[in-house]
Write a protein that binds this DNA or RNA. Sequence first.
RNA 1: GCGCCCUUAGCUCAGUCGGUAGAGCAUCUGACUUUUAAUCAGGUGGUCGUGCGUUCGAGUCGCACAGGGCGCACCA
Length: 507
Amino acid sequence: METTPNSTATEALDENKLIAQRREKLTRLRENGHAFPNDFRRNALAAELFAHYAECDAAELEARAVRVKLAGRLMTRRVMGKASFAHIQDMSARLQIFVQREQLGEALYEFFKRELDLGDIIGVEGQLFKTKTGELSVRCDGLRLLTKALRPLPEKFHGLTDMESRYRQRYLDLIMNPSTRETFRVRTTIVQFIRDYLNQRGYLEVETPMMQVIPGGAVARPFITHHNALDMQLFLRIAPELFLKRLVVGGLEKVYEINRNFRNEGLSTRHNPEFTMLEFYEAYADYHDLMDLTEDLLRRMATDILGTTQIHYQGATYDFGQPFMRLSVRDALLQFNPNLTATEVDDDERLRSVLEHHGIVAKPSWGLGKLQLELFEQTVESQLLNPTFITRYPTEVSPLARRNDIDPSVTDRFELFVGGREIANGFSELNDAEDQAERFRAQVAEKEAGDHEAMYYDADYIRALEHGLPPTAGEGIGIDRLVMLFTDSPSIRDVLLFPHMRPESSV
RNA sequence: GCGCCCUUAGCUCAGUCGGUAGAGCAUCUGACUUUUAAUCAGGUGGUCGUGCGUUCGAGUCGCACAGGGCGCACCA
């Protein structure tokens, strides 16, 4: 590791007594040999021991004389003269250890009492037993300090509750809060489940560029960076979509990618500048096939990971067991705006006045499709609580989606809403190269008119389409928001190990 | 970007009407061989987020700034 003399100098100034005491102990360790040994090998995890021996009664456990070697962080300690109890925590669980002078010998027991601190990483060795209250424990006959912790842990009872500290010092949050560990365990399980699900169905996982010359595939502002050797501007991707469809052109007929996207927008409880998306594409399928797949995926995921299709989120319950509702944008508008008639919902002027009623000033450039979508977002979205597919999005707001055969003003597209929030977005892909070129040109015109989020013209993507994209359906699922739902997390920061934070003035 | 709220010991929190700082845990000293928020006795620990102002006097009142939380806006 690098040494940073400057920072140690400044740290020394604001260092408190607790840290100074621990440094002195570390100094003594250094004087007595290797302060940071790396030769201890454990042969068990705490949770494995609970799984095997929790049911065993005290006499039986004694008879079996199970010897174990465990390593972990010292979390609690109760010293009582010549014998002490403590808990050590490893990645799986927290297990009690029993430390006696009689077992360890005078010197080591004194070391345990004098030199160890809460937070230290230790290795222990001994026989499993059960205390008189029935708690599975290790009677230590060996104990080593493996890593000295110089900083004290947060309070053992209340733990670390300050949200800022929990986000900034996630390591402390993970040490202190089991619910945080569980959230990220579920997150990993969800991603694994998706990979297994798609792999079993013949999808190929791929990785496409994160740094792009032309950022495409979504309507959003990108981050800009610079490549020195090439002396050129590059963008962090806002979506992998156009590259994944190039792969389908290339014959990879079922592909997916789970990776980060970057969008240069405000932060909120639902937005982080970098976020994780699943995008997948399947040739010879349409958006109906994807709705079926999505419904099946989420239902199985809930059953498999949560053991129920009833998702409890922030006091509400959403049912993933029933067939998901399917409703077009237009029908949803009519259903949730009873004062709007079937003719009015297609009337430019009427929609503009209704929007104005909701406090939204419609721009002159907005066509019918954009007006409808605005009203949808204003009046419908937040009310779609149980899983609901909204279909047939206006072509005007869907520049990459295939037009509907019967009504070309809408596309073969859907979005899935749960708890009033968008979870997925999928559509039959636009594979008409000439139509796509035209829609890119319309986007470029909007960009020139001042819309920073409008798309660029991607000539190579058009060239790829000209080679023939088979009829294909594609979808994106926001992993972070899905994890929020499955872990009952109110903020996206709760499901990101290291959410974006403004820099601290001093550490 | 806007609005409301928060910032006091390592952690979790009190702090009254403006009168110079408190508790619990942790830590230190001592006692204690089945405890588990161990217990008992005694101690240490603070630039009250930062700066400016009002005042005889500011943790407390005012303004500005920083960081955070929530909501709105933008979006996924």
